[in-house]
């Protein structure tokens, strides 16, 4: 995965001539992730009709959504296999700022009234 191929002068980084050397991880994991995603969606569907509406059901839905998100980002978007620096650069700001935003909503939401 190094970009030490240079068609230009030594040490010069030119995006147009950059040649990646991707490794294939096969298709087995990809199909497995597809079936897990499908299964979780079916579980979502079932829970909606079985469990009564309420906070605990919502927490289950959000947790299952996060599992799907981790699978899509990690395997389909290949982030699990990227350099550690890149993984953190993407995952950390997203996790910190989005949970901060959600926390603000939970904190302030009950004071807001639009009706």
């Amino acid at each position: 995965m190094s970009n030490e191929h240079h068609h230009a002068a030594e040490g010069e980084y030119i995006p147009e001539t950059y040649i990646p050397h991707p490794e294939t991880h096969g298709t087995k994991t990809l199909w497995r992730v597809f079936f897990i995603l499908l299964f979780i969606t079916v579980i979502d569907f079932a829970i909606y009709f079985i469990a009564p509406a309420g906070l605990s059901r919502n927490i289950v839905f959000i947790a299952l959504g996060l599992v799907k998100a981790v699978l899509i980002v990690g395997i389909f978007m290949h982030l699990n296999y990227e350099a550690k620096f890149l993984r953190w650069m993407i995952a950390l700001p997203a996790a910190v700022f989005i949970s901060y935003l959600a926390w603000l909503l939970l904190l302030e939401g009950s004071f807001v009234s639009t009706y």
Binding site: M1, S2, N3, E4, Y13, P15, Y18, P20, E82, A83, F85, L86, M89, I90, P93, A94, F97, I98, L101, A102
Partner: peptide, 25 residues
């Protein structure tokens, strides 16, 4: 070389998607 071990274009796609994630959230 890039400390991220990816090409510039791919890195920028990730950065764009991160910003888009903030928009949707």
């Amino acid at each position: 070389r890039s400390p991220f071990s990816v090409s510039y274009g791919k890195l920028m796609m990730w950065v764009f998607l991160l910003s888009d994630a903030f928009t949707f959230s």
